[in-house]
Write a protein that binds this DNA or RNA. Structure first.
Length: 570
RNA sequence: CGGGGCGUGGCGCAGUCUGGUAGCGCGUUCGGUUCGGGACCGAAAGGUCGGAGGUUCAAAUCCUCUCGCCCCGACCA
């Protein structure tokens, strides 16, 4: 492609709203433009990157035995009412009406549609297993879209759904997709990690997320420094310290702590570390108050609490509710004498003579001990795992913290959707059974953003060759020199004929502008054709990710570049 | 939804406190000189100051309402 004939509007300055590197460079490099909050147009360069990523995904999905379909973006509400998600999904679901007043949704995900398709046409065990996927635009009306493509409202996703005669086969396919995902992200040139994950809204019982490691990632991860355990902190098991046999030595007594209601304040006031305090938090589990105890320097993991209480909704209680339950202002809650269920994190089983709120204004209890002074309803893992924790899987390791961008997730769903949606088949034994299901998503546009987060410098993007919009850029450094123009055009033509994706900067611009733009848009291989080099019979070859400028003889440049590009393609 | 901030030519911003009829840099167009790391000189085009209402002789500026956007938090296949 000749740069003079396409639209690559590069900018010297990025819009003020762009903060993360991927957003800044995609706008500055002329890859995309914003249309509304979380909604973007892809320009020629950006769309080429998306298509390269999609091609890799298609190749690997097809190789893994999945079949591509294309489902509608606009879905009748009845299907969502049938699954129950019309009510459950909340405000993220964009709802609309047609001219007759009938309700529709813009699909944020497609379990309903795929189930409706499969239940109509799959009747027999002989038709299973089946794995269907699509690459399509999704819409989720996010509370707060941010960081360009990292969290948009409209985005491109590859979603796959598999159907099986039994759980064993569904788990086999889970492993198959897991392996395919490893290949996809590797081929995209990403440094990533598969981590154990919560199953969230989608439901099901087994899930891994594929996280691209990046400082700007929204997700907190922990991974063992010794074994291969890795998990989203939402999901990570917090290893219990060995319970102490000591019963504690101090008597329980009340101390006055006027105005000290945060852990930090109480810790300073009583001159004890936060790790010697026990934090009592009141939650409403489906509206009913429960208390959770964690060590003072820990955080409650609400997902674990949700699981423990069996509630479908767990929220921190309002100040008024806390006051009603504890009889004290917020900041003085404690387990002693509480009439509501008390969930005690196991870490506290290893503590003695700790500090808790006294359920009275301006007072705390010191020298408190489990069992002796209060009896919890349950003991378990209710806290957020944290860097420095002992690894829950191996004996030697400790957890380290990372930030990640979730680019894919695989779920084993069981019959969560197939039962309510009536996806069943007649098995060999003549019995009708619900299909076991899996689903597997990849954020295509998020891959594009996270690739930039991982591959950029101060001047612009450093695309990995397999997803670069073009593999090679040819710079024509002078417009008034026939030899330069003829040579640049010849190299461009020959590379193009050889199947190399090549961009030709034939614009009537000064050399400096072309160098700057080439760095900004991040094409991996750069060939500079100028009169200085031609005088010596050479052109210059430079890799975007390196600093070395190689002078290559005119008759060697094309075969050399073809060889080097091919090597990088994966 | 809670907290903070911002809407002024395509982009980045000043002007708003203290009302007087819109300015700077980049980009764009034309002419000239330049020409291997975002050139220089000269000329020019381009703005309902997010929108509506109000106060005033006079509103980008003050008041009310409203819409949009960004950041932090809560939320999240």
């Amino acid at each position: 492609m000749r740069l003079s004939q396409t639209l690559v509007p590069t900018l010297k300055e990025a819009p003020a709203e762009a903060e993360v590197p991927s957003h800044i460079f995609m706008v500055r490099g002329g890859f995309m433009r914003k249309v509304a909050a979380g909604i973007y147009s892809f320009l020629p360069l950006g769309w080429r990157v998306v298509q390269k990523v999609e091609r890799i995904i298609r190749e690997e999905m097809n190789r893994a035995g999945a079949s591509e379909v294309f489902l509608p973006a606009i879905i009748p509400a009845e299907l969502w009412q049938e699954s129950g998600r019309w009510e459950q999904y909340g405000a993220q679901l964009l709802r609309l009406k047609d001219r007759k007043g009938a309700d529709f949704v813009v699909g944020p995900t497609h379990e309903e549609v795929i189930c409706a398709l499969v239940r109509g046409d799959v009747r027999s065990w002989r038709q299973l297993p089946l794995n269907l996927y699509q690459i399509q635009t999704k819409f989720r009306d996010e509370l707060r879209p941010r960081a360009g493509l990292m969290r948009g409202r409209e985005f491109i996703m590859k979603d796959a759904y598999s159907f099986h005669v039994d759980e064993k086969d569904a788990r086999r396919e889970y492993e198959n997709m897991y392996a395919a995902y490893q290949r996809i992200f590797t081929r995209c040139g990403l440094a990533f990690r598969a981590v154990e994950a919560d199953t969230g809204n989608i439901g099901g019982s087994l899930s891994h997320e594929f996280q691209v490691l990046a400082e700007t990632g929204e997700d907190a991860l922990v991974a063992c420094d010794t074994c291969d355990y890795a998990a989203n902190v939402e999901q990570a098991v917090a290893r219990a310290a060995a319970p102490t046999s000591s019963k504690g030595t101090q008597p329980m007594k009340t101390v006055s702590t006027p105005g000290q209601h945060t852990i930090e304040e109480v810790s300073m006031f009583l001159k004890v570390p936060a790790s010697s305090l026990v934090k009592t938090l009141v939650y409403l589990a489906d509206g009913k108050p429960v208390a959770v105890l964690v060590r003072g320097d820990r955080e409650v993991n609400e997902i674990k609490l949700k699981r423990a209480t069996g509630a479908s909704d767990v929220v921190l209680a309002t100040d008024a509710a806390v006051r009603e339950v504890t009889g004290a202002p917020v900041g003085f809650a404690g387990p002693v004498g509480l009439k509501i269920p008390v969930y005690c994190d196991v870490e506290i089983c290893a503590m003695t003579d700790f500090v808790v709120g006294a359920n009275a204004a301006d007072a705390h209890l010191v020298g408190v001990n489990l069992e002796r002074d209060f009896a919890p309803t349950a003991c378990g893992d209710y806290r957020q795992a944290a860097p420095g924790d002992a690894c829950p899987r191996c004996d030697k390791g400790h957890l380290k913290g990372y930030r990640g961008v979730e680019v894919g997730q695989v779920f084993f769903l069981g019959t969560k959707y197939s039962k309510p949606m009536g996806v069943s088949f007649l098995d060999v034994d003549g019995v009708e059974k619900p299909a076991e299901m899996g689903c597997y998503g990849i954020g295509v546009t998020r891959i594009v953003a996270s690739a930039i987060e991982q591959n950029h410098d101060a001047n612009g993007i450093l695309w990995p060759v397999p997803i670069a919009p073009y593999e090679v850029v040819v710079l024509e450094l002078q417009q008034d020199n026939d030899a330069v123009i003829a040579t640049a055009k010849r190299i461009y033509d020959e590379l193009g004929k050889a199947g190399v994706d090549v961009l030709y900067d034939d614009r009537d611009e000064r050399a400096g502008v072309k160098f700057k733009d080439a760095d900004l848009i991040g094409i991996p291989f750069r060939i500079a054709v100028g009169k200085k080099g031609l005088a010596d019979g050479v052109v210059e070859l430079k890799l975007r990710k390196g600093t070395e400028v190689r002078k290559i003889k005119l008759d060697e440049i094309v075969p050399l570049v073809i060889a080097e590009v091919t090597k990088e393609r994966l």
